[in-house]
């Protein structure tokens, strides 16, 4: 051990008699590159790029705690309860017109509106899950506003369908028994 140690030391001393500031900076850069390469080599998990991760970056210092969002009941528990109420109300709304065999335009309009809200919040949840702001902030904004626009268009379309055609319940009945 000692022999190895000494010879390395001698070689180093011969090669760099005095570190200049510039050499120190270069050495530091290469040290960073080396340590990153060394850690990458320690990862033994097989890399499978089936679902490559979205771009990541570290905000601020690495040891900063994850930011805790400010509590907001309208984005949290109220929103959650509202989603459940909409979902639960869809059960009687979908079954009643077919079971009762009678059609009521107001009920049909209410069904359309509820389905639209349920679809919108469902798509919102999908976007929130798969297009995280932390990774892809601009894509997230694009998707969110794209969804808002699409929901507005479909809302208009459903109004058109309800007012000029026979309504969603009767249309499904027609197609199904065709």
């Amino acid at each position: 051990m000692a022999s190895i140690a000494r010879s390395a030391l001698l070689r180093q001393t011969a090669a760099f008699p005095k570190f200049s500031v510039a050499t120190q900076a270069i050495a530091r850069q290469s040290a960073i590159a080396n340590s990153v390469r060394a850690t990458a080599a320690f990862h033994t998990t097989a890399q499978r790029a089936l679902l490559p991760p979205l771009p990541q970056h570290v905000d601020g210092s690495v040891n900063d705690p994850a930011p805790v969002p400010a509590p907001s009941p309208s984005h949290g528990s109220y929103h959650w309860t509202f989603d459940r109420l909409v979902a639960a109300s869809l059960i009687p709304l979908t079954i009643t017109p077919f079971a009762a065999g009678s059609l009521n335009p107001a009920m049909d309009a209410f069904l359309c509106a509820t389905i639209l809200i349920h679809s919108h919040t469902g798509f919102q949840q999908i976007i929130i899950d798969y297009v995280p702001t932390r990774r892809v902030p601009r894509t997230r904004k694009l998707f969110t506003w794209g969804l808002n626009a699409a929901t507005a268009v479909v809302g208009l379309a459903l109004y058109e369908f309800e007012t000029t055609d026979v309504g969603i319940t009767e249309a499904i009945k027609r197609v199904w028994s065709a």
């Binding site: 389905i115 639209l116 679809s119 999908i126 268009v153 479909v154 208009l156 379309a157 058109e160 369908f161």
Partner: peptide, 15 residues
């Protein structure tokens, strides 16, 4: 998503 996507596609096409 199949249903909501279908509804959105049909709605836009209908318009």
């Amino acid at each position: 998503s199949i249903f909501s996507g279908g509804l959105y596609v049909f709605g836009s096409a209908y318009l």
